[in-house]
Design a binder for these strands. Structure first.
Lengths: 409, 409
DNA sequence: GAGTTATGTTGCATGGCCAAACATATTTGG
DNA sequence: CCAAATATGTTTGGCCATGCAACATAACTC
């Protein structure tokens, strides 16, 4: 077993043949990806990690340096005998992404350099109303312009990545619907272009899918290749990383676990069905259970819940535990279906993690034995910005896939 | 969008670099896979499909022919002007797999040649008792020997593929548990080797995962790259194909949706939890609903249900519809989570498809709109042997991944 | 300061694919 | 029946990327 995998341990999937030229493309990507993900390494280490020849690595690093995305600095203190190897690192402004997050309660923009370096980030709260897409791109534009202006002089913008709380078609970034924004059938890249001409590709994806990607790439989860990210907003967003790649499904709508049936005796969901996961474990369910003590909705009400919980209010703690149990029940299903190494909790669940962890673990324990024993439920380590980080990563994937095509020669 | 993918449209995933040698490996695999999946094609068509140069394809086909897996027959009737192109086809006995299926009620063995040619197949019913693994491999051996003896003289056995109704570790085919067989912690390839020395790799995987693979490869579903296969046995098995590859999860335990909570007020499952999908939609649930008219369990009882249903017995039809509704509810969750193009029903649901389809569609309609509209629920087209076919495909994947390493030079 | 060790650098060899020129087999048209 | 047109097979030479080996270099160790 274990033998017999082609090209990089990947199964033969595409029907297309490969020429020598693509080989170079791939190897450039391998080197750049390694630097992007693990940071500065010696060139000799790069040789060991890639399995390529010393001379080949030297050549690849040379080309990436010529294209301005890596620097081959002087060798640092050498730990042993032998000629010291130069330290290679990414050069953040060699490839910069404008990351945009359209969330339920806020709008955020960041300029991110390759390697994950955040030059600047700004987030503004927006009341939960229904902002038209046109108004939203105006707001984005106003947030973004100063950030772009503040970048180092010779930066190289390679694309824009957008995270949206809605269902997005993977092919073209078309927003099928975004109930929390009141959007339906919005060709977002086109709308953005009307306000903000960037001259670079715009990639759009679902908020939770990008949260998963952000956690996977920047969550300090070395070696984890299978994870599920569950984020509580008004609804429940869910993103999955399988074998190191985002699970998108055939059109890009995968991961919508929030509308799975979890309680046939439950309430009616906004989607029209009865007893969806998010009607039992989402924000509304939590506030409903807390009751009059935290009236209204959105950030103010949640802040009140946090206060009450911190003060040890029994009713609030009970509401959080009950919500945690439903959260865990849904997670149980995801563990069964995906057999991930970890389940990462974000959004609402990140905020109230300490109050919900135990209850969630209790019901998630209903998953099949072998999977449950190997899976742990953890708090998001990237935090509120996971989707924003993921939006940048979405574009960096393009750069990694073909550095020579995107970076200046 | 859509640009910027490396090597065959696959993202850069592995950290390893690629040498020219691997390139050849891959291209041989691409050609062989195409022939394996679509059957005989002209060499010029192969050139068009792979995107490779004429001379390269000639060389690749020549090598595969020299290794005995393909034949470059004479050209067939040419449809237009120009020099006719020779028809290339697989040579089934150039790569033969011994496929084995350990199911709940039966044991099956087949000899399958590359291209999917089934030389021989035999299936024997076994009462549902707990056969020890040792006894099972003796039975397999007795079924398999005559099949191997009946193969063409100069066949080339490349491996054995085994489908088991249980939870299998992907790394080494270790059977963690198989409740329906009464097995626990069985290193199946080793146990098989004690009875049956094959001198070829033995690949083991879950029954439903291989059912999905079998449907994907041999179900006549051209172009479908995302599917979910749901098979009703005693429990519910579930296998998923994502982007043309089986979803395995981090250890190989993915797809165990049968133990997801679907009814908090339901019955206790054999797994210890309450209200699992399979306690509402599995074989026991169906027989329970049919009641005294179909006593007992297993094949006899199901045959009785079929009779009653065919005769139009209202109580039986109601029981099938109710079971179909719970089936559809579970499928709804899978549609939300995977956004597949189709959901294929096998096993029990294949058998009673006509009686359950409508009810299943009714509840599955609770899935989110965009996914539901694009997903259809269909009956398995491969039928009872899907897992057996999938077991063969598992081994063919090894051959396709590196033809030169496995096939004689 | 000489020996040891690990790495960088250079030039050449290898392997695989492509492009172009030529050869071949069939259809079409006179 | 033969020639033109067409599409494909075949052969040769060239290109490109990587590997290999020999040599150069820069540290550490004694």
């Amino acid at each position: 077993m274990g033998r017999g995998r082609a090209l990089l341990g990947q199964p033969v999937r595409s029907g297309r043949g490969v020429a020598a030229e693509e080989l170079r493309r791939h190897n450039l990507g391998v080197v750049l990806k390694h630097l992007h993900m693990v940071g500065p390494v010696s060139r000799s280490e790069l040789t060991a990690k890639t399995g390529l020849n010393r001379s080949t690595v030297a050549d690849l690093v040379g080309e990436l340096a010529a294209r301005g995305v890596v620097t081959a600095g002087p060798s640092k203190i050498a730990p042993g005998p032998g000629r010291p190897s130069p330290i290679v690192d990414v050069r953040p402004h060699g490839a910069v992404v404008l990351a945009i997050e359209v969330a339920v309660d806020s709008l955020a923009v960041a300029t991110v350099g390759i390697g994950g370096h955040i030059f600047n980030e700004i987030r503004v709260a927006r009341p939960r109303g229904h902002f038209q897409p046109g108004q939203t791109v105006v707001d984005i534009s106003q947030l973004a312009r100063p950030l772009l202006a503040a970048l180092p002089a010779e930066y190289n913008l390679v694309g824009a990545g957008v995270a949206i709380v809605g269902i997005v078609r993977r092919r073209d970034g078309f927003v099928q619907c975004a109930p929390h924004l009141g959007w339906q059938d919005i060709p977002f890249p086109d709308v953005l272009a009307t306000e903000f001409v960037l001259d670079v590709p715009v990639r759009v994806a679902n908020h939770a899918d990008l949260g998963a990607l952000g956690e996977y790439r920047r969550g300090g989860l070395a070696g984890v290749e299978h994870l599920v990210f569950v984020s509580g907003d008004v609804g429940i967003g869910c993103g999955v990383i399988v074998d190191g790649s985002p699970l998108l499904g055939s059109a890009g709508y995968a991961g919508e676990a929030g509308h799975n049936l979890i309680n046939p005796d439950g309430r009616r969901c906004v989607c029209g069905s009865i007893g969806c996961w998010e009607t039992e474990a989402g924000e509304r369910a939590l506030l409903r259970r807390v009751g009059a003590a935290a009236q209204g909705e959105g950030l103010d009400a949640l802040a009140r819940v946090e206060e009450l919980a911190a003060g040890g209010d029994p009713a609030t703690l009970a509401a959080l535990a009950e919500t945690g149990r439903w959260l865990g029940t849904g997670i149980r299903g995801l563990i069964n279906v995906f057999n991930p190494e970890i389940v990462v909790l974000g959004g609402l669940y990140h905020r109230f993690f300490d109050y919900m962890e135990e209850a969630a673990n209790e019901t998630a324990a209903g998953a099949i034995d072998v999977s449950r024993r190997m899976t742990s439920i953890v708090r998001s380590s990237v935090g509120a910005g996971a989707a924003l980080v993921g939006a940048a990563e979405l574009v960096f994937d393009d750069v990694i896939a073909d550095p020579a095509a995107i970076l200046p020669g």
